[in-house]
Each structure stands twice: as C-alpha cells, then as structure tokens.
Write a protein that binds this DNA or RNA. Structure first.
Length: 578
DNA sequence: CGTGTCTGCCCC
DNA sequence: ATTCTGC
DNA sequence: GCAGAATGGGCAGACACG
C-alpha cells in the first residue's frame, strides 16, 4: 500500500465533518485493508503505530519536528516558526516547504505505508547517546521522499495530533460497515451470518464496541470482525491487560445530579489523588494509570495490600490512590504524590515518605467473570464483601446511598471537611462503560474563587485558534512590579456570544512591546477575572505561585493594572485554605 | 559532572 | 484537569 | 448529550552541551 493512498483518505476525512460521511470513507478503506490483509494500518488511521496500552513513545514533539524539517528542507528554524505562528499547524508548514522543494527536484521514490510504519516503529527503540540525531535521521529520511501532503501527515502523526476527526465511534462504525454487509430491502433472499438488517445493526455495533472495551486494541478487533461475529464475541476481559477507565462529567447541583443518575444514587468521596486500575490474575498483580501506563513498580505497597486484604483469585478494581503524611496521617495534595508516578529511582524511599491509601470504588472483573454489565449496586456489594477495610492502606471508598438532596449535601460537607475534592454520584443500575464519559455518574466540586489579574504576555494559538493570541500569561502585583502567576487560555469563546479570542487579540495587539517566536510581551493594561480551583506552589512563575485549573470568565475594562490582586492577597488565600 | 531543554496519547 | 463547539 | 479539540500546572526522566 502506498502512503499516498492513506493520505488521500486523511484528506477526505478532514474535508468532511459529518460523521456518517467519515464512516463511509473509512469503511471503504478498511475493505481494502481487509482484502490485502493489512489490518495493522488501522493504527495509522488514528495517527498511532501501537495499541493504546503500548508503553512505547516516539520521544518526538514540536521542537524536534522543527529540527527534522530544517534538516530535510534546508529552511531555517526561524522561518519555520514564523510560518507556524501564522498558520498554527506544523503539519501544514511541512506541507508548504516540502511541497515547494519537490517541485524542483524530480522525485521518484514512492513512500509505502509500510516504510512509514517501519521508521516510526524504530523511534521508541532508540536510546542512549546520539539518540536525537538518529531519530532526526529516520524522520528526515521519510520527509525527503514525501510529497507535501505526505509530509503534513507524517509530522502530524509524530505530534500525536492527526486532526482528521476519527474517534473511537467512527472507527467502530466503519469496522462494522466494512466487515458486515447491509441487506437491501428487496433482496431478502440473501441470508448470511454477516448480513445486517437495521435491527441487528445496532447489536453488531455493540458487539464491536464490547470487543474493543475488553481488548483496547483496534487492530485485534478489526481482525476478529473480518472473521465474523462469533470471533468478535469470543473477546474476553483479561486481568493483566489494561482497560480504559470510565469518566464522569461535572454537574453543579445535587438536583441536577439526581436527575441525571436517578434515585436513589450512590454518592462517594472524590479524592484528590490519581486513578489506579488494579489487576490481579492468580499471583500476578499489575497496576495501571488512567492512560494505561503500567505503574506496578512505582507502587510496591499495592501488591502487599492486595494479597493481604482482598479475597479472590482474579479481579480488576477501579480505585483512586491518595497520598498522606505517614506521621500526621494528613492527606497530601496531588502535587506531592505525583512525584511517585513516573519514578524510576528511589522508589522505596518515596514509598516510605509518601505512602498512599487506595480507595476502591468499582470492580469490573471477579474470579474469571466480567462484571462490566453487572449493575453497579451489585458491583459495590462485591467490593464491600471482598475487601478487608484498612484505613491508610486499602478500603472501599467512603459512600452512602440516598435519594435525599439534604443527605447528599450533608455527606458532601463531610467530604470537604475531610479535605477531599468533592463527591461522585452514581447510577445504581448502570453497567461499567470503559473509556466513556457516558459514565452513568457525575462529579460535584465546590464553587470556586477568582482573582482579577493583568495580562503581561500572550502566545499565538494553533489549529482552530490559529492567528489569534489565545494563551495569556497573567500577573498579580507587588508594589509597582507585576509577578507572573500562571497562564490561562480557556473560558473564552471561539465563535459564540461572549468574550472571544478575536476581541482579546484585537485589544492586545496595540499593546505589544516585543515579539519572540510565537510569544509577545504586552504592556500591562488588560485586566481579566480568572477563576481557579486551587493555588499551588510554583517553581516556574515569579510570584512563586500558580493557579490550578485556571480559566477566564470576563474582561474588567473598569479596572486598571494597579487594581489587580496583590501577592499578599494571594498568600492570604493560600493560608486560608490550609 | 551539573545544568538546561524537551517530552509525555504523563498525571491532575 | 476545564471549556467550547459541531454533530 | 456526546466526542473531540485546544488549552492550564507540575512532575520525573532522558539527552545534549559546556
């Protein structure tokens, strides 16, 4: 298969925003892959080279892509960055400059999809001295034999940002349409196992989704779909192989929460830790993060607790790990346990200094049986039955079941007093939906504070925000000086009514005093209100603090730079919360 | 050897 | 993480 | 209502360079 054929599909997908149309385009292409037995290419369709649970990484991003482009084209860094500033897409920059090159040099090499896949797959294998040089060589080898369009998609694939709009749902539906024929209404005589009518079309879609939920690997699902329905159905959840976690959208009130998840609901604490999927298969115990990274080594205590305090031969648990101070037993902010997640050295020392408590809130597999479709209330019962509760080690999450808004609010107050982030509300009858926000559950967090701050720097955006100044460095005040307290770039509107990026860009441009690359310095004049969830210590900003989850809610034309929050006020807030 | 820069479908 | 937007 | 895109802070590790 020629890489250009694949790029043609990318282009078509990019040009058509309708999901039905995308499905049609993809299904046609998948049929070709099916015929050529080239199912691995399905990874490239989502801009990947490995399944989601793979640990492999390119180790390539913006800076190195720019370097590779410089190497392959001879164009200067400066010009590339300038073009990037203007059009907001390094892929498109590559298209321009590699395309331009090709007009002069007659090139006859045809890039195959396999060649691209091969070179990309080599990237994660390289390590040690000279790695970067060798990676750049592999990339520029591809770029030099690529057309403009091909260069664009090679770069976007490296950046992990294909931007053609092929999410899981589209891939799933395309596999369905590529592997199962739709029966025409006139032709009812043609009955075969692989023929869909509108009734079983839905079921087939579900079967494919289910196979993916259990394997987290589109190549495998595609291969099985090619064999037929029964092959798909044979996919089983396997403890030891990671599964995507269920996600929960935010809701503002318990009334809204109940109307979403039904009554009664289970309400449990939302801990400020990190997601941990614990897998046990006989004596093998593995721990995965939300993005399916294996962190078993980083958290040796998990093995111990699981062996000692949980009954069962095999299981998959969904949990939240929170750090605490071993002496005072006080819970510690996320910032601190985050030190343990990617650690390779001093693991045991950190485990002693910053132990974790595992709060188990769901179970999706138990003793050789998938519980994905078992109602949540049953799953919760199993959790309570099999876990021997040991606070500061492992325990079921703190929870109540209620249909009363008042009881819910009291429970929430208790959660906040205990220093937790808020609560979750969950539908008692719901199945577990891996990787989905359709999560039959929601989260509720406290209302937030804000500061009025002044913009002192801004950066040009990328993708759909290209051409606008769309990210702003904001500052508080100390005497007559302005001290950075973070960056903010969300809350503004792209198109609809309200404060838009366009408007802010227009107001900032006359204030520009200096430009370097994609950032500009501006006179401290524009004041905005910034809402945040927390204040953290910052090693990066001159105020020594940074805002956690900042967003802009409004412009304050009535305020001057001298009116913004002072460092003293920021410090007071930090103390008030601790 | 220390420091700076870059990267991560990172974690939140 | 949060937010906005197109479907 | 959902998925996807574009962004936030901070962390450890890996490599380049002086």
């Amino acid at each position: 298969m020629q890489y250009s054929q694949l790029c043609k599909v990318y282009e078509e997908l990019e040009q058509n925003s309708s999901r039905l149309k995308k499905t049609e385009i993809l299904a046609d292409f998948l049929k070709k892959l099916k015929k050529e037995k080239d199912q691995e290419i399905i990874y490239l369709l989502q801009g990947k080279t490995f399944p989601d649970y793979s640990e492999k990484e390119f180790g390539i991003s913006e800076k190195l892509c720019i370097k590779a482009l410089t190497k392959a084209s001879g164009t200067s860094d400066k010009e590339i960055i300038e073009r990037w500033r203007k059009i907001g897409d390094i892929g498109k920059v590559a298209e321009q400059i590699m395309g331009r090159k090709k007009q002069n040099t007659l090139f006859s090499h045809k890039l195959t999809a396999k060649k691209v896949l091969d070179n990309l797959k080599k990237l994660p294998e390289l390590e040690g001295k000279g790695t970067i040089e060798r990676k750049l060589a592999l990339i520029s080898e591809l770029l030099t034999s690529a057309s403009g369009t091909e260069a664009k998609y090679i770069i976007r694939t490296l950046l992990g940002d294909l931007r053609v709009g092929t999410g899981e749902g589209t891939i799933r539906d395309s596999i369905r349409d590529a592997c199962f024929e739709t029966s025409s209404e006139e032709d009812t005589s043609k009955k075969s196992l692989n023929v869909m009518d509108s009734e079983n079309k839905k079921q087939i879609t579900e079967t494919i989704q289910d196979a993916y939920d259990k394997s987290t690997d589109w190549k495998l699902v595609f291969e099985q779909a090619c064999k037929g329905l029964s092959a798909l159905k044979s996919t089983e959840l396997t403890p030891g192989k990671p599964v995507k976690v269920m996600l929960f959208p935010k809701e503002d009130s318990f009334e809204d929460g109940f109307s979403r998840v039904g009554k009664p609901a289970l309400i449990d604490y939302k801990y400020d830790g990190f997601r941990m999927m614990i897998n046990k298969n006989n004596n093998q115990i593995k721990v995965f993060t939300r993005r399916l990274d294996d962190v078993s080594k980083q958290f040796p205590e998990v093995k111990e607790y699981v062996k000692k305090y949980i009954k069962g031969e095999s299981f998959i648990l969904d949990t939240e790990a929170v750090g605490y101070d071993p002496e005072t037993k006080k819970y510690r902010p996320f910032q601190e346990i985050s030190q343990r997640i990617k650690r390779k050295y001093d693991i045991d020392k950190m485990a002693r200094e910053l132990p974790i408590e595992i709060n188990v809130f769901d179970i999706i597999y138990y003793n050789n049986k998938s519980l994905i479709k078992t109602p949540f209330k049953e799953r919760r019962k199993i959790i309570e039955k099999i876990i021997e509760k040991h606070p500061y080690k492992i325990r079921p999450s703190e929870a109540i079941i209620t249909e009363s808004v008042e009881k819910a609010e009291n429970f929430y107050k208790k959660a906040i007093e205990d220093g937790e982030e808020g609560v979750m509300m969950k539908n008692l009858e719901a199945p577990y939906k891996p990787g989905s926000r359709v999560g039959y559950g929601i989260k509720i967090k406290p209302s937030e504070n804000d500061f009025d701050l002044v913009i002192i720097e801004a950066e040009y955006g990328t993708g759909k925000r290209a051409g606008w100044l769309s990210s702003y460095t904001v500052a508080c005040r100390k005497d007559n000086k302005f001290l950075e307290i973070g960056k903010v770039s969300t809350g503004l509107k792209e198109k609809t009514e309200g404060l838009t990026f366009k408007e802010l860009t227009k107001k900032l441009k006359p204030l520009i005093t200096k430009e370097h690359g994609r950032t500009v310095e501006v006179k401290p004049k524009l004041v905005v209100t910034v809402v945040y969830q927390n204040i953290q210590k910052s090693p990066k900003y001159s105020s020594g603090f940074a805002l956690r989850f900042p967003r802009i809610t409004r412009l304050r034309p009535d305020r001057k730079a001298g009116d913004v929050a002072t460092l003293e006020e920021v410090k007071k807030e930090v103390e008030r919360k601790s």
